[in-house]
Design a protein around this nucleic acid. Structure first.
Lengths: 194, 194
DNA sequence: CTTTACGGTGAACGATCGTTCACTATACTG
DNA sequence: CAGTATAGTGAACGATCGTTCACCGTAAAG
């Protein structure tokens, strides 16, 4: 052999394995998975993947995935129209967690309950990524606590003070009686399709 | 010793370790972490955690975390008004990536361009998680290739055959002229707020 | 008080792990 | 064409792994 590098395919097998088992296999099993029949060959493959930043060494010589290991390729929005779209590899990859969560210790996930924000593209069953803070700005989507329940609304302000505005004409604005308790600011949203 | 069970603390140490290294340590290191000085003791601890459903055996006698292992604090949609958030499972996901991406090697991210799916909660600037496959089912949101560009639409079928249906009344259905090229199926969506 | 259950100790053992070495074959490079 | 870099082979080796066994000490049950 020589030039052609199918390490991407090898890596893909490893990623699949990790997705299922949530652990990386020993070298022998990596050989099984990738079709490499010698542990020495696996060793070299692992070395290459370490160099490329996809794998790391954990205590005991074991393997551990890095953040690059979890990155997903991002394909351009305009493929040139040719039939094989598998080309756009790796140049631009991101992990969804890193993208959505900037301050992990201050961030929680909240499942969306009602339809009050549906015109903002936030549907029941979605999750919102909430950064806990008291200082929300007008125009942001916030998670407020009203009557002991979470409420997700736009934070607005008019001549009479702050108010919570839904993104659904069938809902009306909420105006806090005495005090507005802001739980956090919505910095992201995600949804899974069945 | 005897009655008191501090396995929860042991488990917490393991979860912390996994969060850092994304791999479970060998028994010797588990001993270090938990304060157990004999591998036999660790073995029994592991047995208990397996019984409790927090750990599992992967190929080679290695340990693998189960879905219960990833129990993470998540704020329930209806907090009783007190500051400590409820502890629940976010399904069986370790990360948001893990939640949205089931088959890493077949999955790519596509940035949404137009407004054709806006009533389905998919807005311009959002990312959709796309699982590459040719076999899409009717009713799913698919990424199709038309005129060399990605198009995100519902896949529907009527008496005249397949068609692509937008979720926006200002757009009209697309009916493929001769062949419909499906790039993949949308399995997730996420968005970041500035 | 005696019994029983259980978390942990300490040592020994075979199995498996990852590393290393010399070697083959392929395909770019000059 | 010869030269060189690279993916993979196959075998051997020491290190480490997880298992197992007999044993200890505490605490609840009888």
């Amino acid at each position: 052999m020589g030039r052609d590098n199918n390490d991407h395919e090898h890596l893909a097998r490893l990623q699949e394995f990790f997705a299922v088992h949530k652990a990386l296999p020993p070298y022998a099993k990596i050989g099984e998975i990738t079709g490499i029949n010698s542990k020495a060959g696996v060793s070299k493959l692992v070395f290459r993947l370490k160099q490329a930043g996809f794998l790391d060494s954990a205590p005991g010589g074991r393997l551990a995935p890095t953040s690059r290991f979890f990155a997903r390729p991002r394909v351009g929005a305009a493929p040139a129209g040719f039939p094989s779209p598998a080309e756009e590899l790796l140049d631009d990859a991101l992990t969804i967690d890193d993208f959505l969560v900037e301050h992990p210790s201050k961030t929680v996930l909240v499942e969306v309950q009602g339809e009050s924000m549906i015109e903002a593209g936030i549907q029941p069953g979605d999750y919102v990524v909430v950064e806990k803070t008291e200082n929300a700005r007008v125009g942001q989507i916030v998670v407020a606590i009203m009557d002991g329940e979470f409420t997700i609304k736009y934070l607005e302000r008019d001549a009479r003070g702050y108010l919570l505005k839904p993104a659904n004409p069938r809902f009306s604005n909420l105006r806090p009686e005495r005090e507005l308790t802001i739980f956090g600011v919505v910095v992201g949203q995600f949804r899974k399709y069945p």
